[in-house]
Computed example of a mutant assay.
Amino acid sequence: MTHPDVAPKEPHAGIDPALYRETLGHYPTGVAVVTGIADDGLPAGMVVGSFTSVSLDPPLVAFLPTRDSGSFARLRTGATFCINVLAADQESTCRRFASRAVDKFEGVAWSPAPGGAPILDGAVSWIECTYEDVLDGGDHYIVLGRIRDLAVARPSLPLLFFQGGYGRFAPPSLVAPSHPDLIHAVRLAELARGDIEQLSAEHEVDCAVLAKVGGDVVFVLTANRSEKPTTPSVGHRVPLVPPLGSVFLRDAPEEDVNDWLARAPGQDDATREVFRRNVDRVRERGYSVSLMPDPSVDRISLMTDYSSTERTPQHERRMKQMIADTALLYEPDLEPDRTYHLHSIVVPVPVPPEMPQIAMRMSGLPTDASLAQLDAWVDALSRAANTAAARLCR
């Protein structure tokens, strides 16, 4: 309610698009794929973050595609459409339907709803509708659908979109943080968003901001540009156990290093010596580097299980075992006359001690990289980290 003594302000003539996206991006939205059978008999689909319920009597829902959407133009030629609410583990499906692929259904399993529109395998729920109306909504349409059938297919956590990244609704995630450092780290990461996105675009790689939160490393910001994204969703966690996280010990006291070493999966002196050497190399080089692990291991699924509120001791053991199995891939000897298939490069962001420790990560790198190419990536990543640090410390 407006205070009686204060006249309401006139609306601005124009709204800054970047400010609009940033402000609205602080409201988490569900992610759905709208599917249908076009008039050529082929399936069509598009990702929407604007799906909403409208009315119970009559049963109406809505979504808001852009006016120039070619995918919606194809969907509109069909008699029905189906809202598929994606599950938290269906980010790859989301990215498939958000891409410009000619056949978005290639490799995607589905079955027909009663009216024929595709129901995607693995979706949390589906709602098939006929077109009730298509209304003007500025640079979008407001598509009203009358529900004709619906069901919960897989009771599971839904996929969420929040501040430019995908995640799930769970206490360890960004939507319901369980540690005060996480909120601070997210705010710091947002200030570094431009640096990360520019770095990702210039080098066509995946980039992320990582934060040390308690005994975990958390992905708090991501930007994906590689052909097959290699960065986990925002909110994913990994345990801070050797050989992981040595970059956060670059300026740490010996006590912190010993605490980290005590979490090593193997407690023998030889293993500890390898991990201590890793810390020394990170301190000398100024960055952490790892080689490509076994591609048959689904690392992101393991991280998803570990990050879940439904995490079990078995999930934690599997995650730590995966980390242990890659121990020899971290901080390798680097020789000028060899090439390397790199998994990731991580540099610390030099922030004051009172701030949460954060780092910038680059992955999705081209194969067979020379030492000179590695040095160029490290230089670019370090410049971005220093630029971000200057902004964060203002």
Rank of each mutant, 00 (worst) to 15 (best):
L19Q: 12
Y20C: 04
G30Y: 08
A32C: 14
I37M: 13
G41D: 09
G49I: 00
G49W: 04
S55G: 13
G70S: 06
R76E: 12
R76L: 02
A79T: 15
V85H: 09
S92M: 09
T93R: 12
A98N: 01
K104W: 02
G107N: 08
G122Y: 08
I127K: 10
E132P: 07
I142C: 01
L144F: 10
D149P: 12
R154Q: 14
R154K: 13
L159P: 08
I183K: 14
V186E: 13
R187A: 13
R187D: 13
A192N: 04
D195W: 05
I196M: 12
E197H: 12
L199R: 08
V217C: 03
V217F: 05
V217R: 09
T222H: 02
S226I: 02
P229T: 04
V238A: 09
V247W: 05
E255V: 06
A262D: 13
A264K: 04
N278I: 04
E284A: 15
Y306R: 00
Y306P: 00
R318Y: 11
Q321I: 03
A324T: 06
Y330V: 12
E335Q: 15
V347F: 03
P352L: 08
E354G: 07
P356K: 08
M360V: 06
M360P: 11
S363W: 11
T367Y: 14
S370R: 09
A372N: 08
W377I: 05
A380Q: 04
L381Y: 07
